[in-house]
Write a protein that binds this DNA or RNA. Structure first.
Lengths: 365, 365
DNA sequence: CTGTTAGCGCTTTCAA
DNA sequence: TTGAAAGCGCTAACAG
């Protein structure tokens, strides 16, 4: 494959002239310039970015580390970062961490060896080892949707109120028995669903009943099981807030399975607003996270720093919004009645792993 | 940042010894070896992959070009390639082509400049310019789900029968008026939905009625509009095959909007089996594409070639499967009746852009 | 306005 | 068993 020397030779100019016309980095007479361009063209010259990177110490590449592309939350985030990266002439390396802190650290190091200019990381939790690795890390990092306290990192988050509003919405509808299908892994992302839930109950003057707080693992199946467990409680909830849409969809399934109907018997609110949320029956009321904007913003923050447009640490909080669809409504007239008249004595079966009450469940996607 | 010279100095050995112990590329006495390792450790040495790549002419990086990560078909594909890449010590650069052939070509060239070792491309169509670009391309390419005739490229496809079986299924259920919601862009992926549709009708002894073939653009909204258009036809279909699940979901919406019910009044089959397909009401009967396996296989093919385990051109066809859920059933007793008794005179409104009949619609994802 | 040249940090002969 | 040294292809002083 032709290199700059070949082009220089063919154009009868020096190699540095070639470099300069190709990079528009200093004035070159139109004549030589054209000769260079022609030579490059006819030799099918392909500018070697590896050599350039070695010389300039910049790869024009960023790393993007997310838990899993397959999780419906992330494609839009990725799209956001890819769009701004592409636009700015950067290329992005995508990695799945599978929520494994050890793998996260390995990936960060691998990216550093590849000399990516910067990294966008959506951390799976508040792992101390990760934090430590981040400290002695010279590559710029922006954290996405994490409450990790990294003094060097830029951060993009959403408001912790994201978990407050859906519960308040439920309260405003008249619900007093409101359950939470949260998560077990501590230390993950903002907003902290349990905290928001508790704060909202408090604001509504409803005492928190630990029996109504169960922990799932953010899969649809766990949502189903948790819902069934909540329905089996002595004085079951008339509404439920799930930590993410996948679990909320599972809850919808559980409700149907118990012979009940949403929202008539039980209201459900989710979180994230993934594509699935708008095609369930009933369509899911949920908190829409600004996924695409999160990705874009993270990338903008990173590139601003890389391209020297900023040097102080930045932290931006993006707005969420409660999108009210049909899975929420007023509580049934007789609060704890099985109002369909159907027998639902079989509820609680079907799930082998019983969900476990938790007092401080925190969200993970 | 410390480089090999620093490590060599600290360990009191030559640079080449450092290189050899770090790469296990020739025997080094345990003593020196340990000294090198210790020095590297204490200097926090990070092996510079850029310099290495310049020297070895291999980047251990592959490019992955897909239409759009946000399209629910692709995350699993991406996951497949990332998994095998990661496993083999490769890193992947992800790019969205937005189905723009010009952008596809730009991306290919950008990846080539970055000297990726190989590229996995899911082309948006049979663009001649793309094909030409592919011809004079020295980087190995594997094509994913395309019928593009590239003599140099490895290929992973699925069977064209994927579009035959769902229509046959509909026929077996007793349907005679079967519509197709296809696509307008010619030349995209295997299996060719129109061809399969036509072949299946032929096998069923049903004449093809052009009035029942409409073209969408593979979005949910277009599926809705197409469905409404089909219902407005003189002798409307009792079943519909949609070129992808998104349009099939739209069709379900259109059916409901017309005051009808699936599958009682109209059966619907989709294609792809995206996550959404299993949570609609009714759940969607569809053709499951081996998305993850497609990604894995493409990556395996590529890496086998890159790592010298193969040199002949390869082409593999992966199996699909018809997954029958609740959106398909026997046709209504009175074929063309509006059996719900509801008035559906408002059908056809709501969509501003009328779908257009097509005689040779071909699929795009 | 253009050319010469010294590296960027590594791998890999070739020699000892 | 180890080391010296020649590049990989490019950028950016520096010199003219």
């Amino acid at each position: 494959m032709a290199d700059m020397r070949d082009v220089a030779r063919a154009a009868r100019v020096s190699i540095s002239t070639v470099s300069h016309v190709l990079n528009s980095t200093r004035f070159v007479s139109p004549e030589l310039r054209q000769r260079v361009l022609d030579a490059a063209e006819s030799l099918q010259y392909s500018h070697n970015a590896v050599a350039r990177s070695l010389r300039t110490r910049r790869t024009q590449t960023i790393g993007l580390v997310i838990p899993d592309v397959t999780n419906p939350f992330y494609p839009e985030v990725a799209r956001g970062v890819l769009d701004v990266a592409d636009q700015a002439g950067y290329t992005a390396v995508l990695c799945n961490s599978d929520r494994d802190p050890a793998k996260e650290i390995r990936l960060l190091q691998a990216l550093a060896r590849r000399r990516v200019d910067g990294i966008i990381l959506s951390p799976s939790g508040a792992d101390p080892a990760l934090l430590a690795a981040l400290e002695r890390f010279s590559t710029p990092v922006v954290l996405l949707g994490s409450r990790l306290e990294c003094p060097e990192c830029d951060v993009v988050r959403t408001s912790p109120r994201g978990a407050f509003e859906p519960v308040r919405h439920l309260g405003a509808l008249g619900h007093r028995r409101i359950g939470l299908i949260g998560g077990a892994q501590p230390g993950h992302d903002h907003p902290d669903k349990f905290t928001g839930y508790a704060a909202a109950l408090d604001a509504l003057g409803i005492p928190l009943d630990p029996a109504l707080v169960v922990a799932g693992d953010f899969t649809q199946e766990s949502g189903r099981r948790c819902m069934l467990a909540l329905l089996a409680v002595a004085d079951p909830p008339t509404a439920v807030f799930a930590g993410n849409d996948l679990m909320a969809i599972g809850a919808l399934l559980g409700i149907r399975e118990a012979g009940l109907k949403a929202p008539d018997d039980v209201s459900v609110v989710g979180f994230d607003d993934i594509p699935q949320a708008s095609i369930t029956t009933p369509r899911l009321t949920t908190v829409a996270m600004p996924k695409y904007a999160m990705g874009r913003t993270a990338a903008e923050l990173l590139l601003d720093r890389l391209d020297g447009r900023r040097s102080e640490r930045a932290s931006v909080e993006l707005p969420h919004s409660l999108v009210i669809r049909e899975s929420t409504g007023p509580p049934p007239a007789r609060p704890r009645a099985v109002s369909t008249g159907q027998d639902n004595s079989d509820r609680g079966s079907g799930g082998d792993q019983a969900p476990v009450p938790t007092n401080g469940g925190e969200p993970a996607r």
